[in-house]
Design a binder for these strands. Structure first.
Lengths: 210, 210
DNA sequence: TAGATTGTTAATCGATTAACAATC
DNA sequence: TAGATTGTTAATCGATTAACAATC
């Protein structure tokens, strides 16, 4: 295996494979071929093999893949076999939603700090965690070994928040604000835009009724 | 302009352009060139022109695009110039989060019905809207002219919910459950996977510290 | 008209899929 | 060994970017 630049799309698919493999593992499925896994997750078998080949040889020719083994390998690759500490910035509707959303905790992402500069929010406790002002970020990041920041503030405030996360030492940011953020290039920035998906639907609805 | 198949990526970018144009319009910016808009949203000028060209000629050679005009054209194309009625299925953490998230309402998506089969939830009122059992879906869809269903239930229940939405007459579904859903091909299905983005971050964090 | 910028075609790039030798 | 399925190379496909004639 050589040093190839791994496509973003490949990483996303690895997450998908990992999830289906977890399900299969839970059902005690032992072995699966790329063709069967492809069928399962609605993808192409060659693509699965190629995606995996970026990282190593996980299968056995003539047999396929051992489900629990491949699942473990993918967990390791995606670094889901450890706990990541997250700082949640902004505890409005979206922030509180993300905090209560169990889907994140399941994969080992633990919200270790919540910050919000709204004085009606900071000081409040949620699930035993105190909401603190943004000024506390550097201390919180250091103290809890926080590696990931989640931005759930209005678009206008997002860049300032990103800057403060970076200054505090955070090297990975998940941004839910509909704004283009600039971060140093050693900081990983991932944008999630909830509106785009709905707008996509309305586009297609309008198209088809045309 | 010919009948070309429009790439999904183009549609997503149209949403982005529309947002930046709204901002520019609000700042009373009159005219913008594809190069300037590209700079603004971090894209390529040729790509913007090509994306727009799928739908018509909106610019003026030698000048650029009239901001408010292009903004209006994109709103029309994305069908954001009308109200879409949404049924929200599942009022757990995620569902309630989505309901309270103002980002959706802003673009003309109105949650006209909330359904949930959990007896501790159905019957409750939120913002004047009563949470009803799933059995009410057909009536609600008809009565409120609901065009979009949002699935915010656990993965195991998602397919059944999708089936019931389709049976009730919904032709567009936004699915937040981490499950592969099967729908008739005249139904538009859009999947949003909140976990994948975080897992992507953890992958890259682990890579860079390797 | 000269300068600017579009709309569109052509070139490039990258990602997906097919094919197949290697091998269990 | 014969059959199956991988890992990998080659072919295809599609999307992005560059180039430029059209035209404001």
């Amino acid at each position: 295996m050589k040093f190839l630049k791994i496509p973003e799309a490949t990483i996303k698919r690895l997450s998908v494979y990992a999830r289906y493999l977890s399900n299969l593992d839970a059902q005690d499925r032992r072995v699966i071929s790329s063709a069967e896994l492809a069928e399962e997750c609605g993808m192409n078998a060659a693509q699965i093999r190629k995606d995996l080949a970026y990282f190593g040889e996980f299968g056995i020719r003539g047999i396929g893949y051992y489900v629990s083994n491949l699942r473990a390998e993918l967990s390791r690759l995606l670094a889901l076999d450890r706990e990541w500490r997250v700082a949640l910035v902004g505890f409005g509707n979206l922030g509180s939603a993300l905090f209560h959303y169990r889907g994140f905790a399941r994969q080992g992402f633990r919200v270790a700090a919540i910050v919000d500069d709204d004085p009606t929010k900071s000081g409040r406790h949620v699930d035993g965690l105190e909401i603190l002002p943004l000024a506390e970020l550097p201390r919180l990041v250091k103290q809890h070994g926080i590696q990931i920041g989640v931005i759930a503030v209005p678009a206008a405030a997002a860049q300032a928040v990103a800057d403060r996360l970076v200054a505090a030492g955070v090297r990975a940011i998940l941004n839910f604000a509909p704004a283009r953020l600039t971060v140093p290039k050693d900081v990983r920035l991932q944008n999630v835009d909830l509106s785009i998906e709905l707008e996509n639907l309305s586009f297609h609805l309008a198209q088809s009724s045309r």
